[in-house]
Design a binder for these strands. Structure first.
Lengths: 252, 252
DNA sequence: CAGTGGTCTAGACCACAGG
DNA sequence: CTGTGGTCTAGACCACTGG
């Protein structure tokens, strides 16, 4: 039944570079993804079976399977035993990522500006030490920032970072997001627990944020760990609800 | 260097059942997970290298790798090339899941109660059809529910479910969560996009929720798709912020 | 340098769906 | 029954880390 390659998704020959440091399975997956996004592989159609595909692309079946599996995990393909591999609507494919407000704003073209309202190094309060899983009284850097976007105040952000993880420089915080600093120090957050809630602004908060008392605020408390399970950041943030919301895409 | 099995994590012999329909890699992964959670494999210690482990457990290296990889994805192991496999603090291991308010409440022992405030079947409004990726005017079931917990109103929930996905029975909604109904119909949400924000209650909302006007509300808009990329649910919810917050654990 | 994980191959058998 | 994806094996070579 070779006519399945006519009606279904026919994968054109893919140029693979075996001298490249990029793994073969990833080259294949990337190419398939491009073909799907470009519409050359019809959404709703079926992919060729993995055996034929592997042979035609000149890779082994396990390598082909790995490439396909990669796209399954990203929600672009659905596999059913005995049936085949279906190409699925590439809806929202943005992976779940830890939101960095600074990065988000920079990406959308809004000029972020940061004002440091306090900055100190000292022993961690109990609830923060517990959240981060560090000894009570371990040294942390604690700071409060006011974040502007488009000239308007947007958020008040309080954060703690263990000194053992990264000794933060106050000036760096002005021109960089916290996550950017962590990444630059080779410390990549890999897991996080976030609690998102809402409340109304106190008089003091309202004044700082340029709102009126009783204005709605989004609150977010987050603890983040790196790949080794080390607590790297604790944050307690409040956002003007009229100017900010959290968007997240979940894949189960 | 066989003393590494002494100081590090020594994996005792694992009984594998090759006649079981449960895949070998999964049997191995499950056993390793039990050993870590029971403390028999020391957190912070290193696992044996995968070659020795595979040999001693009597499985091939690819199978052993797959078992290890499974636990890496769950955040229990960390691998570094040239270094080894580290056993990591099993912090929060709850996978990211779509929050079902009904399930959440039932789990925490708060008695959920549901009041249907409206229920109708008709053509989908444009913005909902677009969100779900269904044709404009396709039939949906649209309903608004008031959710109580502990006798107090907690949330107003508006939802839409395409009739093509599931013909919802009004009475079922009273005693079951929406996600429970979807699951029971063999329609499992696999991906979702959520936007979480905040605002203050209008007079009407406040009255329904037993709050005063201007009280802070958490808002959540969600679109969910099943494994095949079919839009299965659209929801627009508001929660009393003094009684509810979203908690989520992210793994990158 | 030796030891580790990362990738890749070429086969094999099985479980399941559908005609 | 045929075709599909799911699992498993036994090897090979490479890239990286650390002493």
């Amino acid at each position: 039944m070779s006519e399945r390659t006519v009606g279904g998704g026919f994968v054109p020959d893919v140029a693979l570079d075996r001298t490249s440091p990029v793994p073969l399975y990833f080259q294949v997956a990337t190419r398939l993804q491009q073909l799907i996004e470009a519409g050359e592989l019809p959404v709703g159609g079926k992919l060729e079976n993995e055996i034929d595909l592997a042979e035609r692309l000149g890779v082994s079946r396990p390598t082909m399977r790995r490439a396909i599996q990669y796209l399954v995990e990203r929600g672009m393909l659905v596999r059913r035993r005995g049936v085949g591999t279906e190409i699925v609507h590439p809806k929202v494919r943005r992976p779940v990522e830890l939101s960095s407000l600074y990065d988000d704003l920079a990406k959308t073209g809004q000029q972020p500006r940061t004002e440091i309202r306090s900055f100190e190094v000292g022993p961690a309060p109990d609830h923060i030490a517990e959240a981060l899983g560090i000894p009570e009284g371990a040294e942390i850097t604690w700071f409060e920032r006011l974040r502007y976007a488009g000239g308007e105040p947007l958020a008040i952000m309080q954060n703690a970072v263990p000194v053992a993880v990264l000794a933060i420089d106050r000036d760096d915080l002005v021109s960089n997001g916290l996550y950017e600093l962590l990444r630059a120090a080779g410390c990549v957050p890999r897991m996080a627990n976030q609690v998102v809630g809402a409340r109304t602004a106190s008089a003091g908060e309202a004044r700082v944020l340029g709102e009126s008392r009783g204005a709605p605020l989004l609150t977010m408390t987050r603890t983040a760990w790196d790949a080794a399970g080390r607590g790297v950041e604790y944050g307690s943030h409040i956002y003007r609800a009229d100017r900010y919301s959290f968007e997240l895409t979940l894949t189960i």
